[in-house]
Structures are given as structure tokens and as C-alpha cells.
Design a protein around this nucleic acid. Structure first.
Lengths: 206, 206, 206, 206
DNA sequence: AATGAATGAGCATTCATTCAT
DNA sequence: CATGAATGAATGCTCATTCAT
């Protein structure tokens, strides 16, 4: 309930290292055994520490889960932004956005297995909505920014920017979901190409 | 351990009614409070029965959850199939498939809030994959059938049927996810139109 | 709590048959799966009836268990008495008592597996003592009667009748226990001979 | 599922003390109320701790029961062995074996009340047989060793060693059973004398 | 005489959390 | 910083028992 009382605001080096270590172990355990099977004891076991230590470094389970989610989303966000920003043309930005999304997922499948499981950790509608905003709003905003650039640069034609951002991001997430649970059922590379193709055919028409 | 204390193999009328009633209450509770907060006691409370009765009608929690999932997927599947089959043209079939998917979701938002939560109920990778097959395989198969019809009827051009089915279904699910958690952030009707538009522009090009 | 209210004192034919059938099934289930695993449902399953019917024919679980124990002890008692009474000499009576005890056990191993398990069903010291009296008092009394006859007929010398009855009956039960759980570890026939031999050497000395 | 939340392999002092304390309380509760009435909650209540703590120190109920049984059997075994080994003559060893068995039982009646009840805790035939081996094999082996020494030292005549060990141990256990449930019905001292007498008369004959 | 639906108390077990050391 | 002992509430599940039909 109360935050660490004996602590200054600035986390120490070891504090930060432990938190990162615990978050990684938590994500791994969640991905392997599912959220409901992931207890502090289970995380601690895989790390060679005691569960008391986890309680010491996090303000309860909710804090741990929240931190884990932010870690994943931030890492993915940076990965994509870096690559998209390197492209001058909007149509390349969009293509790279899709490709980088899938690339990151492919390299961190475990993170996404865990992420899907973590939806189950939100009990109230408010928490779910808050998570939704954290997860989707920045993505849609990024896509909409690309669309606007594309229009300013006369690369893209006319379409509903709001809806299209939801559709493109949705397609990325939806394909990811299928791949996460059954990697052999979906080829991410081909899917990326088809998705980018759908869009470019649409907007370059006029 | 033991399935039931009664003799007959075929369920009675009251048995069926109770199971349906319990499944509905379970879905509602899951949607409202999340899977992890949904205990037999919680479901029973909302129904005015005892938790022992739930254990009497279901072979454990896994049976209840499985039954609930199948109920949702079957209902949605029938709803869509009925409407798609009524269309002679493949391009209409595809459009109706997308629209009907969103319609059903819109009318049963609670089911899908629950469905997403239920992913968290699968602990092993095997269970997750099994669920994935139950959920996605029929959808992708249905889409691929529409694509084949479209090609036979010379309505559609050439594209990777496998990947396209994953992308279209993924887009539907991905948009649904955004809407389920933040209904005000996405307009399902507009999204359906943009998605159908993306595809028709693509395939009618040549 | 209350006995069958709609019933006359005289049990009907079908009533008796059902009780016997249920007792037999109960003994078999207890022998096979242990007392703690033996629920009404389990007994009913093996019989093709419902557990409600068992509750109808017995005044609760305690009644069923008590009836089962009495069934076993009475049957064994009759079997032994019949054979002992056929012998005129006390030393033969004693030998036959031992042999018949083992014979009966050998033919009804299941009954004794169950009997040992049923000890666990008595919760209070009073119940245990009551069972003990039901089980042991008649046996020791029978042995003591044989001893007295032997003395009257000048076959046996002097010894503590009370203690000797406990020792002989104890040896029978103790050997039975070893055999019941590990039939290959004890040969009942040889044990009977050694036990009878111990006694006859002792009392024929003077 | 998970054994313990701590890291070290060797138990601490407090750990050992708690386990012993809990085992003692468990034996007492079983002796007083019977195995089926002995829940973690019941044991904890008599100890002033919570049932969670019992689960913390033992790997489930089976572990607790197994530990309790081994505690009893080991203690009794040591008590007897110590006294038997002090005797040079085989006939004294045998007499002391019988006397020490009864002495120990007399001093720890509660243990044996519990032990008899614990038979009911084994559900499968395999578990029962395993327990039987743990309980009886060492006893019979000890007796057979005494018999062999007796023969080597020309104290004992000829008899079936295997069967005799079963009969003597059986008599000890069988008398104990009668005494445990009805202490006033059997005098352990007299019984010990009669039992030892039976044997010595038999083997010293030739 | 028999069934099946329903109950309610009890069970072992899990787990996040607290805290003295 | 870190541990290990302890808590207490919650969970899925079992089961004898009741009762209307």
C-alpha cells in the first residue's frame, strides 16, 4: 500500500538492475506458464531469489505487471520509431512501420505471448480501457502522423485517417495474434507484404 | 474426478437450461470483472445459486470455460455464415463477412470482452495453440473459400490466399480489440468500409 | 436424522436385497479405493444406481458402514463356529479355530482390506472402543470357552486364560494384517501350523 | 507443486522445530478425532497457528502423513533395537524384543492409535503395500536375525523362520490393537509373558 | 422405490503480502 | 538488501444429505 518508506526518490543502480531482472523473469514465466500460473514464488524460483525480494522491489503485483507492460510497449515503440524516422517518403514510412512491427514481434515472441496473457490481469473496465489507451493510442497517433505527412507530400489520396489507422494497426495486431499462438499458421513476411500492398494499391489509385 | 451422479447419458431439459444459464452468467462476470476475478462463488452469487451447483453441472472450471468459448465461437460462426451464404458474388460475400463480423461483435460486446480475457485461462502452450486452432482455423478457412470462389468467378485477381486470409481476419480481430476496450476510439462501420475498400481496390485492379 | 418415516418396521424383500447389494458394493469399493475415496457416488456408480438411493436405504453413511462391519463379522463368526463345534477335542477345536480363521480370511481378502480401512471411519474414542468390543469380545470369549473345555477335559495345563486368548487372537489378526497388505510375504497355512504348534507344545508339556 | 519458497537445501533450526511440532500435533489430533476428521485447519487450531503455515512446511497432506509415519516407526525401531542389542543370549533378545515392543506402545499409545488410523489414508493398493513393507519388513527381518543367532548359538531348535517371524510380530501387533482400542481388556505385561513363554517352550523342547 | 437437482459445509492448496531479523 | 517465517483470504472441488417429483 505504502511506497518504500526508507527510500530516497532516486533509485540506486542495484535497485534498477533488480527491477529489470525481475521484470524479465516475470515476462518469461508468464510467456511459458501463463499469467494465472505466474506467482511471485514461480518468478523467484527461476531467478534464484526469494519471493520476499520481489515484494520488496515492487509495490505489489499490480506494480510489477504494469512495469512489465510499459517495458514491452516502450521497447517496441522505440524500435519502430527509429526505423520509420529514417525514411523520407511517407509510403516508405508506412511500409517500414508494418515491417518493423512484425520484425520486433518476431524477435520478441515471448513478450507478446506474455502481453496477451496480461490482458487477463485487468479486473475492472477502467483498467482495461487505460491499458488500451497505453497500448493503442500512441500507435494510431503514429500512423495518423504518417498519413498526414503522406498527404502533405502528395503521396496519398483521400481516406478516413482515423478509421484507416485503426484498420492498419488492427491488422498488424490481429496477424500477430494468429502468429503468436500458431507460428506455423502465418508467415509474417508475406503478411507484411500483402498488408502494405493493400494500402499502397488503395491510396496511389487516384 | 467423477463426471456426474446421475445415470442418463443425454442431458435433461433442466440440465441444458442450467448449463446455458451458468455459461451466460460466467461470460457476464468475466466481462465485468476479468477472468482472474471470476470464481465459481462469484458466478453463483450473481445467479442466486450455490457454487456447488456449478460444480454439479460442469466437470470443473476447465469444462465451464471450454463450453463458454465454444458457445461464443459457434454463435458468431453461424451468424456470419448465414449472411455470407445469402450472397452470390464473392466480392459481396467478402464485404458481408467483414460487416457481419463487426455487427455480431457490436451486438455481443460482452462476449468478446470475455473471450479476450479467456486467453489468459490457458496455461500451456498446447492449450493456447488448441484454442487458436478452434478460433482461427475456421475463420481463415471460410475466407479462403470465398477467395477461391472469387477467383473461379473471375471476380478476384491474383494474391497469396493464405496470407490474405490471415491479414483480413487479423484486421477484423485487431479492430475489434481496439473497439472492445475503447468503443469511442473506433467506429466499426467506417472501419468495415475502409477494410472492404482496401481489398476491393486491390483485387479489382487488373 | 430421522429414520424412514413412511416405512413399517418389517423391511420388505426388495428393501433387504437392496441393502445387501449396496453393502457388497460398498465393501468392494472400500477395498479397491480406500475408505476416504469411497463416496456414495462412487458406490452408486459401480452399481448403476444413483447416490440418492443409497441415502434412501441407509440412515446416513454411519449406518451403511456399521451395517457393513456387522455383515463381515457375523459371516466370519458363523463360519468359524460351525467348524469348531464339529470337533469334540479342545485341542482340535483350537487348531480348527486358527485354521478356519485363516481360511475365511483367505477366501474373503477383500472384506478384510475394507475392514482395516473402516477403522479410519471412527472419529471418537467411544466409537473405536465400541467397534473393538464388537470385533474382539466375541472372539476372545470363544477362545476362552475352548480353553475352559480343554481344562475340564484335562487336555490343557495351566495358563492365564485371559491373556492367552488375547495373544492367540492377536496373532491371528496380526498375521492376517501382514498377509492382507502383502500376500506374498506370509504363507497363511504355514503360519497357522506354527501358531497351533506354539500352543500345543506349551499346554501339553506338563 | 512448488516445494518451498526459500532457497537453502538444508532445513534451518526453526524449520525442523516447526515440522516436529506440527507432526506431533497431527498425531495427537488423529489419535483423538480420527484421520478423516483431521484437517489442516484442525491441526492448526490445536497449535495456535494458521493452516497456511502447515502447507508452508509440508509439501501437502501426503508429505505430512508420510513424515508422521516415519517418525513413529523410526522411534519405535530405535527403542527396541537399543534394548535387544544389549542382550547376549538370543532367548533374552527375543524376550526383550517382545517386552520392549509392548513397553514402547504403552508409553506412546497415542502414536499407535494414530498409526492404525493412518492405514485409511492410503488409497491405492500400491500405497498400502508400500506402507506394509515400511512397517513390517524391518520388524520381521529383526526377528529373523534373532532366530538365526539363536540357532548359531544352539539356543533354538528347528522351525520355519519366515513363518515364525510373521507369527511373533503378528501376535505383538494383534495384542497391541486390542489394547489400543480397549486398554482395560488386555494386560500388556501378562500378554508379553505368555507370548515369550509360548516361544521358549516350543524351541527349548529338543 | 427411485431419481436428479440442489445445498452447504468442509477440504487441501495457492498466493500476495507483511515483517522481524 | 535480502531472507524466511507466517498470515489470511480466496479458490476449485468433494460430498453426505435433502427433497420434490
Amino acid at each position: 500500500m505504502n511506497a518504500k518508506t526508507t527510500k530516497s526518490d532516486q533509485p540506486t543502480f542495484i535497485e534498477e538492475a533488480r527491477r529489470k531482472q525481475i521484470i524479465d523473469a516475470a515476462l518469461q514465466t508468464i510467456a511459458e506458464q501463463g499469467y494465472t500460473q505466474t506467482s511471485f514464488a514461480e518468478i523467484a524460483k527461476g531467478l534464484g531469489i526469494t519471493k520476499g525480494l520481489i515484494a520488496y522491489h515492487f509495490n505489489g503485483k499490480h506494480d510489477l505487471i504494469t512495469s512489465a507492460i510499459h517495458t514491452i510497449l516502450n521497447q517496441q515503440g522505440h524500435y519502430i520509431k527509429e526505423r520509420v524516422d529514417a525514411q523520407p517518403l511517407a509510403q516508405d514510412k508506412l511500409r517500414i512501420y508494418i515491417e518493423a512491427s512484425f520484425e520486433y514481434i518476431e524477435q520478441h515472441r515471448q513478450h507478446f505471448v506474455a502481453l496477451v496473457d496480461l490482458w487477463g490481469s485487468f479486473t475492472s473496465a477502467e483498467e482495461k480501457q487505460a491499458f488500451s489507451q497505453t497500448a493503442y493510442d500512441p500507435c494510431r497517433a503514429h500512423l495518423q502522423k504518417i498519413f498526414r505527412i503522406g498527404r502533405e507530400q502528395k503521396e496519398f489520396g483521400d481516406f478516413d485517417v482515423q478509421a484507416m489507422s485503426a484498420v492498419i494497426q488492427g491488422a498488424i495486431d490481429g496477424v500477430m495474434l494468429q502468429w503468436v499462438f500458431a507460428p506455423q499458421a502465418v508467415n509474417l513476411g508475406t503478411a507484411a507484404r500483402e498488408l502494405a500492398g493493400l494500402f499502397s494499391d488503395r491510396v496511389s489509385k487516384k
